[in-house]
Design a protein around this nucleic acid. Structure first.
Lengths: 148, 148
DNA sequence: AGAATGTTGAGCAACTTACTCGACAATAGC
DNA sequence: GCTATTGTCGAGTAAGTTGCTCAACATTCT
């Protein structure tokens, strides 16, 4: 279980913003509440996301957070790398770097490299819009369930 | 970088045993030396591998460690799961379990599930024999390099 | 009996995670 | 200009994890 709270919560926050896209700034308390994220912890994640260029913020009355790009343009790979750092299983598979020093890991390297490329491909093929769509469908299913 | 020393070192130890398959018990000091693993730490990893059923040990003069199965029969997925525990990115993708409680992670779950299945497929397709072969080729390449 | 091997529990230092707290900054409205 | 309403951020904390080490012990062969 290596996806940390950081990664999970950060993506949830962006999904929440995507669900409210076009509605003006979304307050941090609202995000925290809906996504079940401790507010003070969320603050630090929002700082990462802001520095990563995914969100921008407005302080003061009527303030909150907004996406800087359309949800379709925000790829999950970049988000996860911003929040978690590299998802490479081992460091020597990053940037297809040619490692010049032999070590005991070399025999395993091709396996981890393929796994890393698979992950990048999968994460790169998903946008925050896709996830927001799924979250929306999930909400509708939940609502339908309660109204029967 | 989520493959820990445990995973890496444990696989190296098995590769070392595969390289010496058929030569009688391999001593812990030899494995530690060749694979650049601290001996006392290796002891704990060998305990995991023994409990996982991959190796058996002989104490006393002439003692050491041996594989319990042919290298071809030892699949990397099982080894890694023994050493690292599950490699699932998130717990709710394990055993294809149907999660009944909605949470903020659900929207992301299909992505992580595919990634997990990719990993299992890749790791399951590789045996310790494959890795030993690669390690052997690496050794030959190294020897050839020095003899020019 | 002694040397040569492996085994294991406990402990340690350093590091990481998942937060919290409180002070501060920016902004709108009156 | 003051107040309320928002966000920001550095420092700190508790708990947990990682990567080991140490020492005592157990087994086995000569």
């Amino acid at each position: 279980m290596w996806l940390s709270r950081k990664g999970d919560y950060g993506v949830r926050a962006l999904i929440d913003l995507a669900l409210h896209d076009g509605e003006g700034p979304v307050q941090r308390a609202g995000i925290a509440d809906r996504q079940e994220i401790p507010e003070s912890y969320l603050d630090h994640l929002m700082a990462l996301l802001r520095r990563g260029g995914f969100v921008r913020s407005v302080r003061g009355p009527g303030g909150g957070h907004l996406l800087t790009r359309r949800p379709e343009e925000i790829c999950l790979l970049h988000v996860i790398e911003t929040l978690e750092g590299s998802v490479a299983p081992i460091s020597c598979v990053e940037d297809g770097e040619d490692c010049t020093h032999d070590c005991g890991l070399c025999a395993q390297r091709p396996v981890w490299e393929e796994i890393y490329q698979d992950m990048r491909r999968r994460l790169g093929a998903v946008s925050i819009a896709d996830l927001a769509e799924r979250a929306r469908a999930q909400q509708h299913a939940r609502a339908a369930h309660y109204s029967i």
